[in-house]
Design a protein around this nucleic acid. Structure first.
Lengths: 140, 140
DNA sequence: CTATATGCAAATCATTTGCAACCAG
DNA sequence: CTGGTTGCAAATGATTTGCATATAG
């Protein structure tokens, strides 16, 4: 994502454009394994050594609440971030912290159709995410 | 789950049966909203006021590694625990910390069939969990 | 008996808060 | 200008660690 595209994303949400915000969004997009705040901070500091840790956390929170980033659900106490806000699923490696995106329109439709037929009483579904857990076999 | 059943579960895994372990497993089963460690500690202390915080965390880790409990994936930095280790899904309330179990054999089969047809290249699936996110409407 | 589990206090790690200085609009 | 944003340092909260003591098998 270009610098200009990031500026436009921020403006589109009515957010002030700051170098720190651009850097955080850029880092979240470039770092491919659904980075943690720490990953993002380490990456940014290579270029802006004086960015404050707390600033990055505040920027991340701002982005979450404006739907520019999503949090990735994990079983561990470290938050991970996802620059893709459209509905998609995740492939979790059972023996590393690797998490890959899984896009599949057919699967989405299958799930939507299923729950249209078989409703959950007393519950209104807004989103569904499949967690696919397993092991990577060889190189992909 | 009866006290005896818990003892048998522990013995079945070759674990020593201690009052603390029984209490932790009992609490995790009785507390219905996929309790956090803190929830479990608070509950246990009503009956065993001198149980150490660290002991509960150690017991939880032991249970996780022996597959007597599962961790529940969340977007927040607090671990939650699930006494049900068989495959099932979770319903997440979008505006509270409520998480309900969702059992559905038909859905499991639908997913298994789907991924038998449409494999993920370079990945071997071991488990799938659907996160159903939305809002509870009225009482259930 | 002996290895393992517990309790306690201190340590760690991720994240948050408070506040003065700064800067985008 | 001015309110939202940043940097810093200190606070918080959940979880972990180290070690002496206790206890299950």
């Amino acid at each position: 994502m270009t610098n200009k595209a990031i500026r436009d994303k921020l403006k589109g949400k009515g957010l002030k454009v700051t170098p720190q915000r651009i850097a955080v969004f850029e880092a979240a997009s470039i770092l491919k394994n659904h980075p943690s705040a720490e990953n993002i901070i380490d990456y940014i500091r290579k270029f802006y050594p004086n960015v404050a840790t707390a600033t990055v956390y505040k920027v991340l929170d701002t982005f979450i609440s404006h739907n520019l980033l999503r949090r990735v659900e994990t079983e561990r106490g470290v938050m991970r971030y996802d620059p893709i806000t459209e509905n998609h699923h995740h492939i979790y490696c059972a023996d590393s912290n690797r998490i890959e995106d899984y896009f599949n329109e057919e699967l989405n439709n299958l799930l939507i159709d299923y729950f249209n037929k078989k409703k959950i009483p007393g519950f209104h579904i807004e989103d569904m995410k499949l967690h696919i857990i397993g092991r990577f076999t060889g190189n992909r």
